[in-house]
Nucleic acid binder design. Structure first.
Lengths: 252, 252
DNA sequence: TAGTGGTCTAGACCACTAA
DNA sequence: TAGTGGTCTAGACCACTAA
């Protein structure tokens, strides 16, 4: 098994394959410690860098997590459920029949790193909000932390002229949040568009979300409209992909 | 700059930082060739493995792509747009005001790797379709290729009893596809639920989608319902995340 | 204090690409 | 054929963890 030489598959790949199979067959459960660098070096008679390369494959797949000084461990996947259409979802249509098993969590969310500022819109935000690039926007930035684990970054943009002097420019927007305040101003959002992308995180995102290697982020850009062609808010969210299942319901 | 020693940041990270900055500032445009291993070894006076580690950081972020024997190149991101709610989207609500710039492509999709088979449902599929685990399902598997580039894998599950003897069990389901045939059978889907996840690909997915390293996949599980609690089809899709922007529209 | 993962060196040989 | 990225070795020192 160790050195059949019949295949061209590199050593580090074969080692990674064996470990992956062992994880997926349940030989190693989530949280379990895997054979470390030194174990692999003696078991497979390879150099340290080769053993590391094998472990890097699994880490890159999001299957494992290395803790310095302690070892390499199997990661767990226990996602949150985010409903894109809260008022329509879960009304008997699926009867709890999730495609992917997921515990619906009722744990309390803590919001931190709250900032509110006025900035120049810039071309991208201006385009999304039907403004001119040099117009000023109110920028609300927040981080959501669940059980000490950061799971979501949110940055919201609104035309500064629209919200100046209202609770929307304060860290706490009051009951019902930004959308309730917009409604009071006569700009109730009646329609939403969400655009989703998925990619590997930047260094900054990795830091603020404390992401382990091999974890992608989901970017959601949600635009709120008061009527066709009239966007009032753009909310750009960055999610730890391993923490979320996103759900959307719609009619044919 | 090379060896300030004031910071604890590892050499390979500092090298990666400099290259990343150069890419993002436009010094290297998409498709451009970056300094390779040998360049970095002499420029920064490091060993090959250290230069490789720096390049691996950028590759892991999906920013670059290595071509054996040729060099390391900056990758492009030109996503497709997938509308979750085709009939409602783009009707003046946004007026083409995409959050992320994206060319809407009209290129022809080629479908290959088509297989149709009957299998035992198993617990997960049975749960999604309101069946018993040992019930038989019709499994339709396909791959979508756009301009020679595979972008999506699709596997569709339907109760075998429901579709036996119909065009749904043939590779070509005819005009209107599976949903048109279901309608003819008196099981027209009237509602859909999509569940999205994002993670790093498996080896099999990497192969079938020819994914470069550092590219996540998006998993979409779409359930079609004829009435509350009555699912008729589960379609599990695997998308090359770098090829897609996903869009959903809904009312407040 | 023993063991762990993280970083790094200075070499080597290989298959592949492009001139 | 010269250069490239991919694989691999056999060492070394470090900060960190856990007993």
């Amino acid at each position: 098994m160790t050195d059949q030489e019949g295949t061209r598959r590199p050593k580090y790949q074969r080692i990674a394959d064996e470990l992956r199979t062992a994880i997926q067959s349940g030989d190693f459960a989530p949280g379990d410690r895997l054979p470390g660098e030194n174990d692999l070096m003696s078991t497979y008679e390879v150099a340290r860098m080769t053993a590391r390369q094998a472990l890097a494959v699994l880490r890159g797949e999001g299957l494992t997590e290395a803790r310095k000084g302690a070892g390499v461990f199997v990661r767990a996947f226990r996602p949150l459920r985010r409903r894109g259409v809260p008022r329509l979802a879960g009304e008997g249509w699926g009867g709890g029949r999730s495609v992917w098993a997921a515990e619906i969590e009722d744990r309390a969310l803590v919001v931190d790193q709250v900032t509110v500022a006025e900035e120049e819109a810039g071309p991208r935000i201006a385009q999304a909000l039907n403004l001119a690039p040099h117009d000023t926007v109110c920028v609300r930035s927040r981080r959501f932390v669940l059980d000490d684990r950061p799971v979501l970054l949110s940055v919201s943009y609104l035309a500064a002229d629209l919200v100046r002097g209202t609770a929307i420019t304060r860290p706490d927007t009051g009951p019902g949040g930004t959308y309730a305040r917009l409604a009071e101003l006569g700009h109730r959002p009646v329609r939403f568009r969400e655009e989703l992308r998925c990619r590997m995180p930047t260094a900054d995102e990795t830091g603020r979300l404390t992401l382990p290697p091999g974890t992608p982020v989901v970017l959601i850009g949600r635009t709120a409209f008061t009527e066709p062609g009239r966007p009032v808010e753009l909310n750009e969210m960055t999610l730890d992909a391993s923490s979320y299942i996103l759900e959307y319901d719609f009619d044919a």
